[in-house]
Design a binder for these strands. Structure first.
Lengths: 360, 360
DNA sequence: CTGAAAGCGCTTACAG
DNA sequence: CTGAAAGCGCTTACAG
């Protein structure tokens, strides 16, 4: 019975149940400390009074916000790619967080400098215990800020180009793009394709065969597998790999162009592994136009585009990514977001997940 | 100087500035109550100490969360439509909310019943002052729950089919679809098109010409304008309007089919107004395939698809939608989310915005 | 315009 | 296993 229209408080529950305040508190926070009989009785009263703890009070006292902040972005950025992924990532992250009793706060930022200011506010105002970053780069001001201030954080995506990709000061969760395109290539080979091309974004590749970007990672998966299967492995630095790889930018038009160039170079082309669904759509449409529907195509992201146009694609498995993110931030079973000393605790600071090939 | 690594509090600021606690508090909450000289001095100290108010403490005391909750959805729902809009809506809403000092909390739900439970928790735990709903329907359990509990809320989208669309108990902000397709139709006419078709979703339309759904609203905009301009206005109940309207479902394949059917019925077709970008893409691709590139097409949403494929589309103007949402919830200049008695206060409970035609 | 006190609703030591 | 007290960091009356 909440008095006078206000919500019932822990005091109301304690009184109604005939126990002290912190017995009620314990029922919620340390149920094992309370005798089962008492616990059940308290829970019954909680139900009757429809009591829900006031989270501001809890946060103030416990000094834990039990919240996570994530930046949301506008979809106005060119290419389909970002939007599809972000939408689902925020959804899956929120879902996974709720399962572990964590709230997700959205924030926006127009630049990384502005983002640092926003992060500072979020943290100093005690509104969040941790941060999920989505696109980190070398010398990212957000990273140095978070590290300096000892704020738990993690990035979705490896810090490509960093000196040490596996530094314990920069935890991350990511999708293994190379393994994905390798799987796609193998699937196509198994299906009987023998001239499997690649349509990517950036043609400049590192000489040592160590990927420096998302697209290079995906390119190498195709290159190595394709080379192995066909026995046509060339020297590592060969970007084009027998002229079967072409590069452009993240657009349908670029995908169309890639399709034409590949077909020019290799008339008996029978499949193309694409770095993204957008590129894949371009290839698909161009091959359709040319009456070359028989050429198989795979994309990346398993976006609604892939589903709609019915081509195979690599699903980033965002539910698993989100679960992994929370495992890094909270441990496998913990219920609080804390700054982990990964080196000392010997727990994973980095999770690399295989994407799932969805064959259509 | 925060003591021992913890963040500085209002007490630290008061001490350092040599004023009382609530002079500091006033500087933040009622600056006009503080003498300018004192105010500047306090603000200087705030800056030096890098002080940010603890929001949990503020919320607990003030009984305002200054937060808004919005459901985020998975993009796995069929069709491109939802995803594009949601992504941008959450972004624009967060941006607009931040401008007015409001946080946005994301939550998920698998069903409306489950959503009611989540809403209950959010409200009773004092985590949110208001709710933004995104797809309401007749007899929506969320609506009755929110109304009963006197929770400030608003829906993005009109409650199609409700007894009274403009009931003050159900505030909303929406896009005027009819005005959008009317504008698109007029633009095409002006351009010289004389056989302008329509590709929609649902063919069953109300007899009285009052739209009962998003798609019917958009259909009527085309129908009325097209009829007026061509002088071929038929009876209101005629769904097909001279055979120039065809209906299908939200998919590219359905758009392709619509294109074929329209062209079959009207060989000299020169334009198609589409209910969505997805349908428009289908039309575009099919016309390309048939060598009928001259036929103009307009879509709805101005999604990345429209930009990518270069067809005209109606932008939902989500920044304006978001600003409107906050005006309804907070008033034009207010700084708190409150339950408005729209009838008594004589302020708008409903905002209908014109979409913006982006011509390509 | 400024100050000293009370209190929002919890959890956290600490005592029994 | 349970209880009485203290206190998290603010804002809100209220007094001057």
């Amino acid at each position: 019975m909440a008095r006078k229209g206000r919500h019932s408080s822990i005091v109301d529950v304690a009184e109604a149940a005939g126990v002290s305040l912190q017995t009620v508190s314990n029922v919620f926070n340390f149920p094992e400390r309370v005798r089962p009989l008492t616990r059940d009785h308290v829970l019954q009263v909680v139900k009757t009074l429809d009591y829900t703890p006031n989270l501001s009070a809890r946060r103030l006292r416990s000094k834990k916000s039990s919240s996570l902040a994530v930046r949301v972005d506008s979809n106005s950025t060119p290419g389909f790619f970002r939007g599809f992924i972000q939408d689902d990532f925020v959804y899956e992250l929120t879902e996974a967080a709720e399962r572990r009793g964590i709230k997700v706060i959205a924030y926006t930022a127009e630049s990384e400098t502005q983002e640092v200011e926003k992060l500072k506010k979020l943290i100093k105002s005690k509104d969040t215990d941790g941060i999920i970053l989505t696109t980190t780069k070398v010398n990212d001001p957000r990273l140095s800020f978070l590290e300096m201030n000892n704020v738990p954080f993690l990035s979705f995506g490896r810090p490509w180009g960093a000196e040490d990709l596996y530094s314990v000061t920069h935890p991350w969760v990511d999708i293994d793009g190379a393994s994905g395109t390798a799987e796609a290539t193998a699937m196509l080979w198994k299906k009987g394709c023998r001239n499997i091309g690649f349509a990517g974004w950036v043609s400049s590749h590192s000489a040592d065969g160590v990927p420096q970007s998302v697209d290079e990672d995906r390119y190498l998966g195709w290159k190595n597998t394709s080379g192995k299967l066909s026995g046509k492995l060339t020297r590592r630095s060969d970007p084009g790999f027998n002229g079967l790889a072409v590069f452009g930018e993240q657009s349908v038009a670029s995908g169309r162009q890639a399709a034409r160039r590949l077909l020019d170079a290799v008339p008996d082309l029978d499949a193309v592994v694409c770095v993204s669904d957008t590129m894949a759509l371009g290839c698909l449409l161009e091959f359709q136009r040319m009456g070359k529907q028989a050429i198989s195509i795979t994309g990346f992201d398993n976006s609604p585009i892939a589903k709609e146009f019915g081509f195979s694609s690599l699903d980033q498995n965002l539910p698993a990514v989100s679960r992994g993110a929370l495992e890094i931030l909270m441990g496998e079973t913990g219920n609080e977001i804390r700054k982990v000393d990964f080196a000392a605790e010997n727990t994973a600071a980095h999770i690399l997940l295989k994407p799932m090939l969805v064959v259509r």
